[in-house]
Design a binder for these strands. Structure first.
Lengths: 346, 346
DNA sequence: TTGAAAGCGCTAACAC
DNA sequence: GTGTTAGCGCTTTCAA
């Protein structure tokens, strides 16, 4: 009745070697498809591995060679857009022998440092950092320790690769769409970026800049109206409240992220207004939420899956060739128009 | 200009020992707060650790002792309820030196096996399996290898601990609420469970059973109406379509999960009906989605955070004492009534 | 209280 | 093409 009397000793490479009547080196080589193994040997080893149910210990492997494990850090597990990226990563890696482990959702530099350290401590073969907020030097440090791909920042690092969408273009898609519908007072809710070093590469800051540029291009420079909050539902709610209280209320709100748009919709409903009759709303990320029929939110599609696939591909390439020059992929977003945007009230 | 010319050698316990002028054994002991270290020695070692920025290698640790890492497996990263549980786990472990790593979202037994194996391969100190679908014997196997807590199954295992909510009571809360409002034709959408071994412990099956019991208790045995699909948005959509096509349409739908309710709402909207005027809808899990003001879905709250905290606590207790008897915690759910439920149309 | 030394499971030189 | 051997960084006996 003792549940775990004897935690049975794990099958090791030595057991496999004995069972197959070869050396441990041979087993190791076969397992890694390394050079210098005869077909006969491979067959013997594979058979023994199967019969004994052997699995290599990633911990032991990590001390000498690879662990065949990729770490993925994502800031907020609740944001469905990140799940999309993750799907792409998973899809790309599913054909390989690499495993994935995720860091727990982390907000802020301290938590990010903790997560990346943990991944390094486990000697993961590479890490994918999704929308990190850490300083550039911190990312540099991580990348100098382990092959790294950064997703969602417009980086120009020579140390790590990056994948992001063209946020300037994405913001322009929204403004163009709203302007074409006849809107002039188009407001934007941004995630405030104070650190000047980060303004150049954080997507939120670039979306705001893209909004400004597009407004100017439409001759709407005087109508530029940005509220600075955070990319959260709460941020959208508070930001929208500010905008709705304006003497000349905007006729359209471009939220920097779908999660922000959720808060915006909530504030609008609470104010007794209707979307899109009284006010149009657009988001960014094209999450499942935006696609939810009763919501039907116009949103910028970043092709998260493709971003994830690209990130995984770049990482494997870097693992294979540590010195290869850094690649920086910019994917073009598209606009998915839905019922939350329409012509402004007259 | 070479980006990663020399990946600098990691600081090891030997470096710390030399710097502090003590033995590696001493360093190891201090790091683990082990018995037999003088205050003076501790001070010296701590100082050296800080000065050198030393971090223990989890990989190396894993070969002999603990890795101070907990693995959490969750089936679907998109379901916000799981994020809630995760928050609870994170909260409880934040006071400890344990780190968390998550498995990638997995659906199906094969994927679950892969994830748990990966965690074991990395010699994690313990694993928390959230709503696993694997067979009982498979869970037993995992638990006999590594301390395990299973979340969301009504298990009676002697090998692993478990935490779940009382799904019979949760279903009753919904039926009671709807019956009190005057509903009789209350339908239920369940996630189909065919494996007889699993019916007794899977929450979806127990919710369906709770629905049946509660309906009978209200004298509504003849109105029992269950559609079997899956716990997905698509499942809810298709299930609702079936129900709406009934000759005597139900006046209320109890979806087995909020994600299912999303699909239900979509089908209802598409059918040109209104919630709650034409039909009431209730969900299960009280996700952020249910709380979203424009939706305002009545839902059963499982106290996910508390579930996570309990799971983490049980796991640490088991890690400390491997032979302790298995504990099975059942938390009582509560009902959060919102605008999606009202009296039936007359 | 402290430290020397053996090994955890694996990979990588380097023989043969 | 194959096997022997020396570690990787850490924990853990076991002596001192």
């Amino acid at each position: 009745m003792r549940p775990r009397s004897a935690p049975p000793r794990r099958v090791t490479i030595v057991d496999v070697a004995q069972h197959a009547e070869v050396s441990t080196t041979a087993v190791s080589k076969v397992l890694r498809n390394a050079y210098g193994t005869s077909p006969a040997m491979r067959a013997k080893v594979r058979k023994a591995v199967a019969e004994l149910g052997y699995r290599p210990s990633a911990a032991a492997r990590g001390m000498r060679g690879q662990t065949y494990t990729i770490g993925v850090m994502l800031p907020d597990i609740r944001n469905p857009f990140f799940a999309e990226i993750l799907d792409g990563v998973t899809e790309w890696l599913s054909d390989t022998e690499y495993q994935i482990l995720l860091g727990p959702g982390c907000n802020g530099e301290a938590a990010e440092a903790r997560v990346t350290e943990t991944m390094i401590d486990h000697s993961m073969d590479g890490v994918i950092l999704i929308a990190p907020v850490s300083s550039r030097s911190r990312l540099q440090h991580v990348a100098s320790t382990v092959p790294t791909v950064v997703v969602g920042r417009h980086s120009h690092s020579t140390t790590y690769d990056s994948v992001a969408d063209d946020d300037i273009a994405g913001a322009a898609l929204v403004v163009d769409h709203l302007a074409d519908l006849g809107h002039r007072r188009i407001a934007h809710i941004e995630h405030l970026e104070t650190d000047p070093a980060r303004i150049a590469e954080m997507p939120n800051a670039i979306r705001a800049e893209g909004y400004r540029q597009a407004m100017r291009a439409h001759g709407l420079a005087d109508d530029i109206d940005i509220v600075s909050t955070t990319y959260t539902q709460q941020g959208g709610y508070l930001g929208a409240q500010q905008l709705l209280a304006r003497p000349r209320r905007p006729t359209a709100i471009f939220a920097g992220a779908d999660i922000v748009a959720m808060g915006v919709l909530e504030a609008i409903a609470q104010a007794g207004l209707t979307v899109p009759d009284d006010i149009s709303v657009a988001g960014y990320d094209n999450t499942t939420f935006a696609n939810f029929e009763p919501i039907s939110l116009t949103s910028v599609d970043q092709a998260g899956r493709e971003i994830g696939r690209s990130a995984a591909r770049l990482l494997l390439e870097r693992i294979a060739e540590l010195d290869k020059p850094a690649a920086h992929i910019r994917l073009s977003p598209t606009l998915v128009t839905r019922r939350s945007t329409a012509a402004p009230p007259r």
